[in-house]
Design a protein around this nucleic acid. Sequence first.
DNA 1: CTGACTGCAAACGTTTTGCACGGTA
DNA 2: TACCGTGCAAAACGTTTGCAGTCAG
Lengths: 140, 140
Amino acid sequence: MRDYATLLNESGLKATFQRMQLLENIDKYGHMSVDDIYAEVVKTHPSLSLATVYKNIILMVENGVLVEVPIDGKKSKYELAKEDHIHLVCTECGDVEDKPHMQETDTLLHTLTNNEHFKLKKQQINLYGVCEKCQIEEAS
Amino acid sequence: MRDYATLLNESGLKATFQRMQLLENIDKYGHMSVDDIYAEVVKTHPSLSLATVYKNIILMVENGVLVEVPIDGKKSKYELAKEDHIHLVCTECGDVEDKPHMQETDTLLHTLTNNEHFKLKKQQINLYGVCEKCQIEEAS
DNA sequence: CTGACTGCAAACGTTTTGCACGGTA
DNA sequence: TACCGTGCAAAACGTTTGCAGTCAG
C-alpha cells in the first residue's frame, strides 16, 4: 500500500481521514465514479457526506493526484495519477482495464502534434469493446 | 453539403426539419455541445425546444449518425460519425480539431486488443493541449 | 492556535419525462 | 391516416454552495 498521507502532503493537501479513504479505495478498485467511491467509503464511515467526495475529487484532480477518465454516455471515473497508459473500457460491464502505453504510439502522437504546433499536455486513449469476461457470459 | 434526409432515413429515422438543422450545424462547426447546438439552431428557428435537441442527440447517437466526444471536466461534444480519427482538444479555447488516424497506430491497437481477447468496437484518442491560435494569444 | 476541512441542507443547473398537438411517410 | 416527433412545463437528477462545527498541521 502506498503512503497516501505523504502523497497528499506533497501535493499541498492536508491528509484527512476522508481523503485517505478515497485514495485507498480508488487505488484498490482502479477506476471509480463519484457514486462508486461514496458507496464504498460510506460502508465503513457512515457519516461521510457526498459533498465531501465531490469537493475532494475536484481538488485532487486540480492538484494532480487523481485523473479523470471520461467515458461515452456515462459518468466519468477517476484513477490515481500515473504514467500514460491505455484504457480498455467494457461497454457491457463498465469495467476499465489499464494497458501499458506503447512506445511507438507515443512517438507517433508526439510527432503528429509537433507538426501541428500543438502543445501536447495529456494523452487519453480509450478503447471501447467487450472484455473477455463479458464475451464468455454472452456465449453462455 | 451532404444529404441529411437520406442519411436519416437510411438510419431508420424520419427526416424532420429539426433533425436536419441539428445535422447541418454539427457538420458546419465540426464538434458541438448540446447547448452550442441549441443556441445556434434557435437563432433561425426560435420555437425549437431544448428537450427536442436532447431527445434527438440521444437518438442519433444510438442510431450511429452522431458520435459522442467526452471531454475532461466539460460537457460532451458531438460530431457526425465518420472514419476513425484523432481529436486535438484545446484546453484554453475548448475547440476540437480532427486529425486523420495513423495506420501504424491503428494496427498496434488492434494487435494489443486481440492479445487481450478484447472485442474492440470503437477507438477514441483525445490529445489535450494548447492549440496554435491560443499559444499565439498567450504570448502577446 | 488557525486556517482548512467536514457534514448538512438548501440551491442550482442540467437532463428527462408526460402529454397534447402537429408533421412525416 | 397512423404513428412518430415536437414543444411545453414539470419533475427528477446530479452537482455545487454556504455555513457552523471540527480537525490537521
